[in-house]
């Protein structure tokens, strides 16, 4: 073990944490909005929209994230002139934008399924009761469907957050210097792979430990009747 390498690389790797966190937070927020929309579409009675949402979910769940990242980042370069005419190239030019787009679309598809499961777990009786006392659809969603569905979906969503923290490491493959990207850079300079990756791995473990705790805490808050 080269402990001096570990000591030196620790602050450098910590420097990658904000980048990783920003990737994760941005993707989760955008992905969640996408997921709510697509879960609704998936459950809608309009066959086209249901099919459309279903295909999106199926495609993004059935292909590796790495393919999605490369397709968006390097693939968009093939259509540069077209994208420039649309004025979209300024976005696609940035590796950051592409990484967040890929991660958001990916987590959006998985989360849509989690939300769909949650919504379907709401019993008809509760919805009918809401309707019977004259709730409008929005109120019904806000007061009955959403609170029940979110409790049902939370454990699954917690797993999804952890998966996205892990998946953000793939951003390093398109030149973004987050924790894994920095780790690779240090290895190239020090040739000490084991030492560097022990530290980088621990950073991920700590982040995921915190995520797990936050989810557990939220579950407590949402289900006070089960915990005393």
């Amino acid at each position: 073990m080269k402990f001096d390498v570990m000591k030196e690389s620790f602050p450098q790797l910590i420097g990658g944490v904000p980048e990783t966190l920003l990737l994760v937070i941005f993707s989760l927020c955008i992905g969640f909005i996408l997921a709510v929309i697509f879960a609704q579409l998936r459950l809608s009675k309009n066959r086209f929209w249901s099919w459309f949402a279903g295909s999106y979910i199926y495609i993004f769940r059935s292909t590796p994230l790495l393919v999605q990242i490369y397709l968006i980042y390097y693939g968009s370069g093939q259509f540069r002139i077209f994208l420039q005419e649309l004025g979209l190239w300024t976005f696609f030019r940035e590796a950051w934008f592409c990484a967040i787009m890929a991660l958001s679309l990916n987590t959006g598809a998985y989360t849509a399924e989690i939300i769909r499961g949650g919504i379907q777990s709401v019993s008809w009786g509760e919805i009918e009761a809401g309707k019977a006392i004259g709730m409008k659809p929005l109120t019904l969603f806000r007061r009955i469907i959403f609170p029940v569905a979110i409790r049902q979906a939370l454990p699954g969503y917690g797993n999804e957050i952890i998966l996205i923290v892990k998946s953000s490491s793939l951003a390093s493959t398109i030149t973004i210097l987050e924790i894994t990207g920095i780790a690779k850079k240090i290895i190239a300079a020090t040739y000490a792979p084991i030492e560097v990756f022990i530290i980088a791995g621990s950073l991920y473990l700590v982040m995921n430990f915190i995520v797990t705790r936050i989810i557990e805490f939220t579950e407590h808050k949402l289900n006070p009747q089960f915990y005393r």
Binding site: Y74, S76, G77, Q78, R80, R93, A95, T173
Partner: peptide, 14 residues
Amino acid sequence: DTQENLELDLQSGR
């Protein structure tokens, strides 16, 4: 990582 990817980005103007 690779020269291929570098060239793809040089070509695309990134």
